Amino acid sequence: MMTVSIPTLQLTELIVFMTCGLVFVYGWFLRRDEFSFLCFGSNYLISAAITVGFDDFGRYGSWLSSLGWSLTACMFWVGFRVFDGRRPLTPVMAVLTLLPALLHVGLAAIGRDAETVNTVSTLAYAQLEAAIAIYVLSTSRGSAIRRIAGLAQAAIAAALCLPILPFSPNVEQLTVVIVAINDHVTSIVLTTAILALQSERAYAALEQIANHDPLTGALNRKGLDRELKKERKVAGVIVADLDHFKAINDRFGHAAGDDVLREFVKCAKSVLPEAAILARLGGEEFVIVLEGHDRHATVFLAERLRFTLQDKPIAWNGHSIAVTVSLGVEMTDDGAEVVAAIERADAALYKAKISGRNRVQVV
């Protein structure tokens, strides 16, 4: 019959939990705004302490053990929710966290045998781990890394149930080893996945900074060039320029001018379809690319943008700043000549300017 060395399992699990915990705590120490890392690190460090304090692999002889493991799992869930920018704790999470210990205490109080108490509390704890897995998987948003993290979490839930299945004594000992090895592997996988998700998010933030105008949030020239490299269908192109923008800066100050630019982008986003490309070329000039729109639809949106902006003066320090815009419209034939179409639309914009401003000029 196989014999299992509980101290050996405790030692290896302690090393894995401590290592993962210290990695996250160090990450939090470097960036104190990453509270999720503190949650993840606390989960592993407390798990390490529980591993030393209770030699109950597969069996929870004390309600304190059930509560301890449930609290660490909840910390992990809280860490993921904080990482996602959500409320850390929900009533459902609180109930699922306390349920294993409450069932343990309740069943013991009414005289149920230790085997029943262990089985029920184990299933409740596995339910908590499964709920975490469901949350991670359901919020993966197409991220392969996040799906890996969710599957690792699901593996924890599945492994927890192995020791309570009706196996022979020899196989039952093996399940304890499987639970321990599963803990080791999933801890490493989860730690690696979370660090990868953090890197993925940091890269996305850098991409946002590199490709967007920091003042208005619209694409900058680099972001526009990147979008124009994609294969596109026939598209409508609008080049827009705010009228008398220098006069606004001279009269109200550059801070007011910045606010006017931001409000123009907000106005444009409220009018344009979600798939529209909006970029700031520089100063007060913007370009809009409307894939799949014909000339009539493009002119209609240009006029709608002009009227919407004209009818909504911008409030600034007790003043009402009237803002108008001139727009040039052109079409692409097959999506391959967007840059040339922008140049032609810019020429149409110039005609709108010299024709009195606050108008749409079509090539």
Rank of each mutant, 00 (worst) to 15 (best):
M1C: 03
M1L: 04
I6R: 01
P7L: 01
V16P: 08
V16M: 10
L22K: 01
V23P: 03
V25N: 02
R32I: 10
F40W: 15
F40S: 04
N43T: 13
N43F: 14
Y44Q: 11
A48M: 13
T51I: 09
L64V: 10
S66I: 01
W69G: 11
M75G: 11
T90W: 00
A94W: 01
P100N: 09
L107A: 02
G111S: 03
T116D: 06
N118K: 01
T119E: 13
S121Y: 03
L123V: 15
A131R: 06
G142T: 03
G150A: 02
L151A: 14
I164E: 01
P166H: 06
N170S: 12
N182F: 03
S187F: 12
I188M: 13
T192E: 05
I194H: 01
A210Q: 01
G217R: 10
L224S: 04
R226Y: 08
L228A: 06
E231S: 14
A235I: 07
V239F: 10
A240R: 05
L242Q: 10
A247T: 08
R251E: 13
A256M: 08
R262T: 13
E263Y: 00
F264C: 09
L272D: 12
A275V: 11
R280G: 12
L281G: 09
E285R: 08
D294L: 08
H296T: 12
A297Y: 06
T298G: 10
E303K: 04
F307T: 15
A315S: 12
G318S: 05
S320E: 14
R344W: 00
A352E: 04
S355H: 13
R357G: 00
V360Y: 05
